[in-house]
Simulated assay, not measured.
Amino acid sequence: MPHLLILFILFVNSHAGYASEESSQLISGDSSSRRLLRAAYTEFPPYTYTDSAGKPAGIYIDLFLKTVENAGYHGEFFSAPNARIYFMLKAGEIDLWLGVADTPALQAHVVEVPVDPFSITLKLWYMNGTKPANSLLDVGNKKLVVINGFTYSNIVDQANSDLSESGESLSVLKSSGHASALKILASGRADYMLNYEEPVKEMLKINPVPDLNGSLIRKRRLAFVISKYREGSAQIHKDLSQSFEAIKDIYWPAKREAAMEFSQ
């Protein structure tokens, strides 16, 4: 009888061990089956930004998380300047960028999922009393403040190249962010500011700047910009495209309307 009892205890313990191990594998298997997508963003409120708790936030972040969750992935984020993000996409160091479509420097290296109707609006800003400017060529030899790390699709370099033919050159000041650029413009240390309308509007909610004007330079569509050099990039592109189309009108009508208001 004692031998039978010992055998019974060993039998129960061994099967309990198998059950525990199987449950553990099921939990870890369920987690690992959702591939991690490493995504970069830049500080661009209200679309993408780092909140006071140090966490990624914004309309675009929320939309991306819902899209990847629906597609069977999960996301990991980090913030970096655009120039650094471009390098990492070309090197295949990240899966994608929550960015803009049709960036010339990236076209040979990425595939894109357009995020319609989201768009952003680049403007040339100036104060009352400053000569209105509708393009960078109108700025001439005046001082222009830009955001450090933003490439603006190289339109500043192109304008300088065009201006050099007439002996003119933009005097470019680089600011650390949207708030500091606006402060430089408002204080008169720069004559013009090249910046996107969406973050400027966010800054103006906190610190209104009277007599501020802006001329439209261009509109740009947003997109999930996927590096071609990451394993499975074609499948990621397909999955996110299908997922975004499936969820955009179900989960995000209010977000889309908010985004369109910023673009008007």
Score class of each variant (00 low, 15 high):
V12A: 15
N13Y: 13
A16V: 11
A19Q: 14
S20Q: 14
E21C: 10
S28D: 13
S31K: 15
S33Y: 11
Y41V: 06
P45A: 13
T48P: 02
Y49T: 03
T50P: 04
A53G: 15
G54L: 11
K55F: 09
G58T: 01
Y60G: 01
F64L: 11
F64T: 02
L65I: 13
L65S: 14
K66A: 11
N70D: 07
G72A: 07
Y86G: 01
F87H: 08
M88P: 00
L89P: 00
A91Y: 10
G92E: 01
L96D: 01
W97A: 03
D102H: 12
T103E: 11
P104N: 10
V113P: 00
P114C: 09
P117F: 02
S119P: 06
S119N: 07
L124W: 03
D138T: 06
V139C: 03
G140K: 05
G140P: 02
K143L: 11
S164V: 12
S164I: 08
S164F: 10
S164W: 07
G167F: 04
G167M: 05
G167C: 07
E168L: 09
S169R: 14
V172F: 05
L173T: 05
G177S: 08
A179Q: 04
A181F: 06
L185P: 01
G188D: 05
E197K: 06
E202C: 11
P208W: 04
V209M: 07
L216C: 09
K219N: 13
A223S: 05
S227Q: 02
S227K: 01
S227T: 02
Y229C: 01
S233A: 15
D239L: 00
L240C: 08
S241N: 04
S243H: 03
F244H: 04
E245L: 07
E245F: 02
E257L: 13
A258H: 08
M260I: 09
E261N: 11
E261S: 10
